[in-house]
Design a binder for these strands. Sequence first.
DNA 1: TACACCACGCGAT
DNA 2: ATCGCGTGGTGTA
Length: 171
Amino acid sequence: MKQPNLFFYSPISTPFGISIIGWYDNRLSAFVLPQQSLDEARNILNSYQLPKHDSQNTGSSLPWPDLPDKINAYFQGEKVSFPEPVYLEQFHPFTRQVLETIRTIPWGEVMTYQQVAHQATQSRAYRATGQALGRNPIPLIIPCHRVVAKNSLGGFGYGLEWKSRLLSLEK
DNA sequence: TACACCACGCGAT
DNA sequence: ATCGCGTGGTGTA
């Protein structure tokens, strides 16, 4: 009899609203940027491509007790890094490769989609790279906002206002 | 398979 | 500024 695969999540409050941290197999697996209500945040969580799980639970204590504080510090403009382990195994290798690659972009720096494509897969798949970033279930912690187009901001799943807000926090 | 989609980049208007 | 096309991974059927 196999153990059920449990997905946990925990809402946290931030200066900008309600966020959700999700984890699976003791690794960080989802993050929802601040929303007005818990319902909105949960809807976004469920729109993510999450690891295959048997049940979704809340109320369990976070494996990283200081993470909410770090997130709040980030929103206050502090230079914070997020080395917590992540779970991305529900994605194809290309997508994982792209997401792992951009994890290494330091606070305050940016790369273009083209640069990410080249570094991640030695290819010109910068369009596919954009697609992969659009699937990022752990924004902020996996800093997809630090990837911009060569001559513009590029896109962002939560809207470009969010992207520029995050980037200006890092100036 | 085949086909459509896409958070890009580039060169030609 | 805008258009068209190359580009390559993914989702869907």
